[in-house]
Design a protein around this nucleic acid. Structure first.
Lengths: 135, 135
DNA sequence: ATCGATGCAAACTCTTTGCATAGCA
DNA sequence: TGCTATGCAAAGAGTTTGCATCGAT
């Protein structure tokens, strides 16, 4: 998913193309790892115009809803990055900077620890859904 | 990990055995799924003595630190359950009630959808650590 | 008696929402 | 012009912390 594709998704769903949205999207195309709302704000302040937190939050969740971004949660914050094409795309995530590295095959920590230069500190493999009682 | 083991871990690390702690731990031995701090408080009010949020939070994070509980985060809240013996223990988690079901083998959603009575809505498979630049 | 555990209250972080204004189509 | 996007401000949820008191050893 690149910038133009993302904007096309926006417009084809009836949402407007604004400078702020383009700025936010551009940040994600230029950063491959996971970013928090705070990260986005900091980069917007550095490189682009100012922007308020609420607008960032509103747009990030819109982008997730439209399938432009994917969202995950760790260290008490929501993190976002451009959605992978591959549905089975999982990541090694640096808990310090958010950098990600794709995982190709079903991995477990021990195998990963040997084959990657990441220093593994933990992992999360969970499937969510509704149990029979809650459906 | 049962109640007595958990209490032994507590004492052997220099922490005191109190009624409140035993109440909290008992709730986890009697509930197999993930519980939030709020769930714990509700059950304490129903079945045991009252207890304040801060005490619950302090103890839950102590128990995680001591390896008695495991913690995960979804839907904006931290969820806890007794730690599995098996390090490769992953779960199917009901996002409504927190019920869990163990996953034995490396799964992906499609395989799971066919072999389980959970209605799958999403999954999270992530490995955390420090990238070369952050180590 | 000592030192950790608890309760109360307040603070903190991240996120969301209502409403008026600004801006795209 | 009409309707969406944005900014401001406030609120909301979950969680953490300081401090005085209670309680286990």
């Amino acid at each position: 998913m690149d910038l133009n594709q993302a904007i096309h998704v926006l417009k084809s769903n009836g949402y407007k193309h604004t400078d702020k949205r383009e700025d936010i999207l551009r940040i994600f195309t230029e950063n491959k790892g996971y970013l928090t709302a705070r990260d986005v704000l900091r980069q917007l302040k550095d490189h682009y115009s100012g922007l308020s937190f609420d607008t960032i939050y509103r747009n990030l969740s819109l982008f997730v809803q439209l399938g432009i971004l994917e969202e995950t949660e760790f260290k008490g914050e929501k993190h976002y990055q451009l959605k992978c094409e591959d549905n089975h795309c999982h990541h090694l995530i640096c808990v310090s900077c958010g950098a990600t590295k794709d995982i190709d095959v079903c991995p477990f920590e021990e195998q990963l620890a040997r084959s990657n230069d990441f220093k593994i500190t933990g992992h999360k493999f969970e499937v969510y859904g509704y149990c029979p009682a809650c459906q």
